[in-house]
Simulated assay, not measured.
Amino acid sequence: MSKGLKLIFSSIALFIAFSILLAFCLWYSFYDSAYVNSLLEKKASLIVIDSTTGYCVAAFLLFAPGLIFVPGNAYFKLKGRDDGKTANALNKLMVFACLLSLSSLFWGPWGVTHYWEVRAQKAGYQRCPSMTLLVNRLHYTAWAKDIYYCDDPDVVRILTRGSHQEIDEANQYIEKQARQ
């Protein structure tokens, strides 16, 4: 197999991998954001904020420029136009994207969590005290309209992992308790 063909195949493989990872990160961010948004809109009794969606910011900042870098780099190498000026520009772009992505591993989760916490507070939610709900989930925080339900043993039993299904079940239980 020639060197040019190897370069084309590896570029295509990287492009596909970056595209799939970028699509997954975008889907995960939008899916979780839409779910929390829907809970806030219908004024659910309990919401759970997942700060891991902030890591998708870092992935986006890495994979989006990678979609430009990989085919651009392959194109210039295949054409023999590896003059240094264009390659340096592409390399600087990718280094900047990597550094920005690395730094966003720290500020991304904080920014996303802060955004949802402010929205929850404005909607009248209170953060559940630590060691009440989701004690085994580092990146998840539970917020409730009535702080009493943070200590309710049945809610603790229902809400173990913080999945959307468990949140819906816990909200149904709280609504049922409120009607009684």
Rank of each mutant, 00 (worst) to 15 (best):
M1N: 14
S2H: 12
L5G: 02
L5K: 14
K6V: 10
K6E: 15
I8P: 07
I12D: 07
L14S: 13
F15I: 06
I16F: 12
I16A: 13
L26M: 13
W27G: 08
Y28Q: 07
S29Y: 13
F30M: 10
Y35L: 14
Y35F: 15
V36T: 15
L39T: 06
E41Q: 14
K42F: 04
L46Q: 06
L46E: 07
I49M: 11
I49V: 15
I49S: 10
T52F: 04
T53P: 05
T53L: 14
V57K: 04
A58W: 01
F60Y: 08
L61P: 09
F63L: 12
F63A: 08
L67N: 03
L67T: 02
I68H: 09
V70G: 01
P71A: 04
G72S: 12
N73E: 15
F76I: 11
F76V: 04
G80I: 10
G80D: 15
G80E: 14
G80T: 13
R81G: 04
K85H: 11
A89M: 13
L93C: 11
V95F: 13
V95L: 15
L100V: 09
S101M: 10
S101K: 12
S104T: 09
L105V: 06
W107K: 04
W107I: 07
G111N: 00
V112N: 07
Y115P: 03
Y115C: 05
E117C: 05
A123D: 02
A123F: 00
G124D: 05
R127N: 09
C128Y: 07
S130Y: 13
L133M: 11
L133F: 08
L133A: 11
V135F: 01
V135E: 07
H139A: 06
H139W: 02
T141I: 04
A142P: 06
W143Y: 14
W143D: 02
W143P: 02
C150K: 00
C150Q: 00
D154M: 03
V155I: 11
V155G: 07
V156Q: 15
R157C: 01
L159K: 02
G162K: 01
E166Q: 09
I167E: 03
I167R: 01
I167P: 00
D168T: 11
E169D: 15
N171A: 04
N171Y: 02
Q172A: 15
Q172K: 08
Q172S: 12
Y173N: 01
I174E: 10
E175V: 05
Q177H: 09
R179D: 04
Q180I: 06
Q180W: 08
Q180R: 14
